[in-house]
């Protein structure tokens, strides 16, 4: 492979890893800091991607009557990229509220089951309700920000900068939030719910805020993904690809550590891509099953982490006042 190809490949790797890092950061608020077991990330991924797609594309009827025969979508506002990101965050936050309301007062595993349920339901709705967003065929031709600026062949560099910038903004805002009194309450709830309730903290409200905050970030991640691939369809947002790979990233990097979440995303995405190179050596008859082998490797990795290194690569940062030490 010539040098240009290698660089293009590294850029692709970094963009996708950066997008996954955004998800891992969102999950880190919910799981790493509050102990909320959200295993329906794919649902927020899907809603975020579709919301942004609907906000930023024009209505098919306005494009041309012929196009409208092939594409259906419930609305199309033709707004800029930034509105797509914000809209995705708002809608995901609202959905998180709807899920949190019945489940956050109950045992912790009920939230898990409910989030699996919402992820499946969202995917089924986008697949079967064609008027919403074109059913299983999905939406295509999503706009990309700053597209006219450079040659389309080099566009990936600009998108890489955008993704990394969004990632850094989210990283800084989480770091600030988590060092605030609000963040301390979240960690107190994770460590001991009863004790924090006895200190007069409204557990339900704090958990709800954490769930909504994390889910909004996941919505932004979904939007970033949608505008990178430019085409989305419901079959992308399966639990394997949309949820569990992100869990492995956070667990590998170190839950409760935002740098760990980012590191985990880059490392696990690297392993995922690396495993593809390995499975390319498989005989032709096994090629079709290569993705399963890659997933198998990733999940065996998860089990090993859980048993032998539950704190992940980095472990949780100590967060005490700078004055002590």
């Amino acid at each position: 492979m010539e040098i240009g190809g290698i660089i293009a490949f590294l850029v692709f790797w970094a963009i996708m890893a950066g997008i996954f890092a955004v998800f891992a950061l969102g999950l880190n608020i919910q799981w790493g800091y509050t102990g909320l077991f959200n295993i329906g990330i794919a649902g927020f991924f899907c809603i975020g991607a579709y919301t942004s797609a609907l906000i930023t594309t024009p209505r098919p009827e306005d494009v041309s009557p012929v196009y409208a025969q092939y594409v259906q979508q419930i609305f199309g506002w033709d707004l800029p990229f930034v509105c797509g990101l914000l809209g995705a965050a708002v809608v995901c936050g609202f959905i998180a509220f709807l899920i949190g309301y019945p489940t956050l007062r109950l045992r912790e595993d009920y939230l898990a089951i409910a989030t699996i349920g919402i992820a499946e339901t969202v995917r089924l709705v986008f697949n079967n309700y064609h008027r919403l967003a074109n059913g299983p065929r999905g939406l295509m031709g999503l706009p990309q920000p700053l597209q006219g600026l450079v040659d389309p062949r080099h566009y990936d560099y600009i998108y890489l900068v955008i993704v990394l910038a969004v990632m850094v903004v989210i990283y800084i805002s989480i770091e600030r939030a988590i060092r605030s009194p609000w963040g301390r309450v979240l960690r107190a709830i994770r460590e001991d719910e009863v004790a924090s309730a006895m200190s007069g903290k409204d557990i339900f409200r704090f958990k709800m805020q954490s769930l909504i905050f994390g889910s909004m970030i996941m919505g932004v991640g979904g939007a970033l993904y949608a505008h990178y691939t430019k085409a989305i369809s419901p079959d992308v947002f399966t639990p394997l690809y949309g949820t569990f790979i992100i869990w492995v990233m956070l667990m590998a990097g170190g839950s409760g550590n935002n740098k760990g979440a980012i590191l985990g995303a880059f490392v696990v995405w690297g392993i995922w891509i690396g495993a593809k190179f390995l499975t390319d050596f498989l005989p032709y008859t096994l090629k079709a099953r290569a993705p399963y082998i890659r997933f198998l490797i990733i999940f065996i990795l998860l089990e090993i982490i859980l048993i032998y290194r539950p704190q992940g690569l980095m472990g949780e940062e100590k967060r005490i006042s700078k004055m002590i030490d």
Binding site: F37, D109, W247, R289, Y292, I293, F295, L306
Partner: peptide, 28 residues
């Protein structure tokens, strides 16, 4: 995990991993 007194959520996560390992073996 039980011997290490891990929380029920960690066990549930381990079970999720196990479920995918079974499914991937079946699919392979």
């Amino acid at each position: 995990l039980r011997l290490k007194r891990s929380g029920s959520v960690i066990l549930a996560m381990s079970a999720l991993g196990a479920s995918f390992i079974i499914r991937m073996i079946v699919l392979i």
